[in-house]
């Protein structure tokens, strides 16, 4: 009886956010690192503010966040560090923003990456989601702006999405705070391995490309047994990505991350 009550209560907003303590930019030791990625103008900064209690300026404006922001929160007695990455449409080209986001997810190895998605532009946003799922095992899709989507008569079946993508999909309306408790629950489940992520991998049709990747992956696995995602590195090497070629030449992959994502000050506009 008692446990049933608690379970019901976990559904309601108040109780679930009770487990949340917003830490602002408080620094210190963290149990988990969470990266926040997504297309521009999908509400990443709003989600960031909701979770950390900070007041990063938000705006209906692609590219509003030009400096990287960090914040923290405690959920169910675990301390999380949250990193707001620049919004990008893809991870495949070589603009500065895409490099920062790509290298952080690939080499910074966050414990989970929240991918914020604009529900009203699902297909375009999924291009990025699929690319992120290529380079990380642990992700949560935050299906944001669902209030907008329903205003546009769009219905999105998050269960189907969850099945297709292989990671938790949580509908939210971050502006109103709807779905944030569930998002936290999703993060919690992924970092603790309660939810086993089986991320969707892009189906490559060209046999030639597939073989090329397999050959290179075999070689990479042999030489870098600890590298978490050899398939993506192989893809980038075939592409001729200079930053990865350099990283291999200089030795460690890890150094890449810390050079490029130095904390920059947040200026309120």
């Amino acid at each position: 009886m008692k446990s049933k009550n608690r379970k019901q209560c976990a559904e309601c907003k108040k109780s679930s956010t009770d487990h949340l303590t917003r830490l602002g930019i408080h620094s210190g030791k963290y149990d988990f690192t969470v990266a926040l990625a997504g297309n521009p103008n999908t509400g990443k900064s709003t989600v960031f503010n909701r979770l950390t209690g900070l007041h990063q300026h938000t705006g209906n404006w692609p590219g509003k966040t030009v400096t990287r922001a960090e914040g923290g929160f405690i959920y169910q007695e675990k301390r999380y560090k949250l990193i707001d990455l620049p919004g990008t449409y893809s991870l495949l080209s070589n603009t500065r923003d895409e490099e920062i986001a790509r290298n952080y997810i690939l080499f910074g190895q966050p414990d989970v990456t929240i991918i914020v998605v604009d529900s009203t532009r699902l297909e375009r946003n999924l291009n990025l989601v699929l690319q992120i799922l290529e380079i990380t095992e642990k992700a949560v899709v935050c299906l944001n702006l669902v209030d907008e989507a329903s205003r546009h008569q769009l219905k999105i079946d998050e269960k189907k999405l969850m099945r297709d993508l292989g990671v938790p999909v949580i509908p939210t309306s971050a502006r109103n705070g709807d779905g944030i408790p569930k998002l936290l629950q999703g993060i919690h489940e992924v970092v603790h391995g309660i939810y086993p992520c089986k991320p969707h991998r892009i189906r490559i049709e060209s046999e030639q490309l597939k073989n090329a990747i397999d050959t290179l992956v075999g070689k990479l696995d042999e030489i870098y047994p600890d590298l978490p995602n050899t398939r993506w590195v192989a893809l980038r090497l075939i592409e001729g990505d200079q930053s990865i070629i350099q990283a291999i030449k200089n030795g460690t992959f890890k150094n890449l991350v810390f050079d490029q994502t130095k904390k920059e000050e947040v200026i309120v506009a």
Partner: peptide
Amino acid sequence: SIYKDAAKIADNAISI
């Protein structure tokens, strides 16, 4: 390949 997959997944999930 990416666009194809994305379009398929989106189609599956969205109903108007």
